[in-house]
């Protein structure tokens, strides 16, 4: 089965319908009723709103079945095959960046992320890419830690920054 827009439409609609059901189940862990004595239960709003989401997705699925919406008649590939690479690589490298931020620390991960990304997608020289990849985390550090006093996650690379803090304060 090819990932055409038509297929993506039904695929996404079914996933959203399942999510809506999941939300309803989760919301129903709290009271979903509304009585005058007890006021509105904590689950009331999320439950009935999720039911609304479910109804919306069912209509979308129905429109797909009777081919009433533009997406249900569109057999073009969902993601432009020539642009596939950009989308997937970007998403994966972002996942890598956030994983790295959580465990290795943001400043170190940024160096690798920028180096990888620029190496792949730009035609700049290696020297430019290296300088840029190292300069950006430094600027980020100065801006957040020094000016705004917001500490960004440093993970296991934290001890590397102790001498810098020693100099800063």
């Amino acid at each position: 089965m090819k990932l055409t827009t038509r297929n993506a439409e039904i695929f996404v609609a079914v996933i959203l319908a399942l999510c809506s059901i999941g939300l309803m189940i989760k919301a129903a862990q709290n009271s979903i009723t509304w009585t005058i004595e007890d006021n509105m239960g904590a689950g009331f709003m999320p439950f009935w709103l999720s039911l609304g989401m479910l109804i919306c997705t069912i209509i979308t699925i129905f429109k797909w079945v009777i081919r009433k919406s533009p997406q249900s008649n569109n057999n073009e590939p969902f993601i432009d095959p020539e642009a596939n690479k950009y989308v997937y690589v970007t998403i994966l490298s972002l996942i890598g960046l956030i994983l790295g931020t959580a465990y290795v620390g943001i400043y170190i991960s940024l160096i690798f992320f920028l180096f990888f990304y620029l190496k792949n997608f730009s035609e700049k020289s290696n020297l430019f890419i290296s300088v840029f990849s190292i300069a950006t985390p430094i600027v980020t550090f100065c801006f957040f830690e020094w000016l705004l006093k917001i500490t960004l996650p440093q993970g296991i690379s934290e001890p590397l920054f102790y001498p810098i803090y020693e100099l800063m304060y």
Binding site: P159, L160, P163
Partner: peptide, 30 residues
């Protein structure tokens, strides 16, 4: 270049850690 910077960082931090006396606690970061 990367490697050099990393080595510089590590050696720097070793010095800093070892100079703070083991007994008295002093915060190393914010």
């Amino acid at each position: 270049l990367l490697k050099k910077v990393a080595i510089l960082f590590v050696s720097f931090s070793f010095v800093a850690v070892s100079t703070t006396s083991a007994k008295e606690f002093a915060p190393k970061k914010p």
